[in-house]
Design a protein around this nucleic acid. Structure first.
Lengths: 243, 243
DNA sequence: ACCTGAACACCGTTCAAGT
DNA sequence: ACCTGAACACCGTTCAAGT
């Protein structure tokens, strides 16, 4: 076996499958999942794929397109998780249907914690994201909302529609949440109401999930507050305009 | 006049005031205001201040600290705009007070559109932000909320508490929102419900503020939906636990 | 105490070339 | 058609030095 044959055998072992747009995007998702969004650089992505940085530009125009692409992949996952983006029949229980869909999206977002931030940085919606939004519009329509009220509803839901809500970093109560007593005293002086709330909430629920609050519970509390409010708005609307 | 005196006269004209932490942060805010957050780099900030990049590190430990600092400046502006962070007396109209405070915060955010994104990237709350949150807690408390319900309320409000809601870029309806008719047809095929909503909403409100929807109206719609829902939750709670 | 210069280890991307 | 090498114009930051 000549040394050149050995070398090409080595190479094809490193890079089993040929480079494609799909493989680039999937590897980008993996990279962001494992190392955070900052780990997703063109250069590290190329390294992960066993290829030179410039090779990526043959399959993808630039980094922006990669970011658009991985958001689309995330929503393809949402589509899978919710069993497609179809819309319930008219007069079905819109609220339960929407709630289920949004919580499924949330499950996907929890697996890709970088996704909210990247979505935020995009302009306009990708096709799969648009199809997700379309299913939300269709679900509200099936519940008897006017298009005007649907429009307001979507603004009211905001990012919660996609299964996340802006949480301001991970540690909610600032540094003092860690429990250092000197810091707590300083905190009580500067933010007395906040400190009082923290001590009560922590006392009532000593072993909460993440730090001092249960994200899943809080997400559902806010989501239901909105969905209930929207249902009442719908009822008011249909009282005004009976069909 | 010797040439060295001339040179130093020139320099002190360029850099009137001495470099201080405050001047660094204020200039950082100005830079982000005028050129967007991407324009805020250490090197350009130094240039703006008439100083070498490394000089900044004497007044500020690193770029993260600059980002923390400018968020704090934004909330100092909120404090000014709301006439301080004080809390209404017990049994005052908590809902109106909170609504006013949040809309004032929104006014400040509109002047610093980069602020939501930067806040999102921070871990923990700076002191002025914490004092803002404290005033929200205090206001809810003055309205008779339990600390537990206050905690849920703050999660429900999410970023809306700070006067913004995640809006997903600026163009809401994707590319097709521009109105190209071929794109609209493609859109109707792929996202029929969304396309239907857009055509109705646009028809009803042909000259809306920004593109096809009025941000201020939508923000208040969502905010009031939440505040009304929270008021009902408070009433349920006090019916359960009469004082 | 306050500011600088040179250098380092990174970015995304262009352009002309290889196979 | 697909991939590469060298180079460019940027980043934030360290370290040793100047005044």
């Amino acid at each position: 076996m000549s040394s050149t044959t050995e070398r090409s055998a080595e190479r094809s072992a490193e890079r089993r499958t040929p480079l494609t747009r799909e493989r680039v995007l999937q590897t980008a998702v993996d990279l962001a999942d494992s190392g955070g969004i900052d780990a997703l650089t063109i250069r590290r992505l190329a390294e992960q794929l066993g290829v030179e940085p410039m090779s990526l530009y043959y399959h993808v125009p630039n980094k922006e397109a990669i970011l658009d692409g991985i958001v689309d992949l995330v929503f393809a996952e949402v589509e899978g998780a919710t069993g497609g983006f179809d819309v319930p029949d008219a007069d079905a229980a819109w609220q339960a249907a929407l709630r289920t869909r949004i919580l499924a999206a949330r499950g996907v977002m929890l697996r890709h914690p970088w996704a909210p931030g990247v979505m935020d940085s995009r302009n306009g919606l990708g096709i799969t994201t648009a199809r997700y939004v379309d299913s939300v519009v269709g679900t509200l329509r099936s519940g008897g909302f006017s298009y005007d009220l649907i429009h307001h509803s979507m603004h009211a839901l905001g990012s919660r529609m996609f299964g996340f809500s802006q949480e301001l970093g991970e540690e909610d109560g600032g540094d003092a949440a860690s429990g250092d007593s000197e810091e707590l005293q300083q905190m009580a002086a500067q933010v007395p109401h906040l400190a009082a709330m923290l001590s009560v909430v922590r006392h009532d629920d000593p072993d909460s999930t993440l730090g001092w609050c249960d994200d899943q519970f809080e997400f559902e509390f806010g989501l239901d507050l909105l969905l209930d409010g929207l249902e009442r708005a719908r009822q008011r609307e249909s009282r005004r305009n009976p069909q």
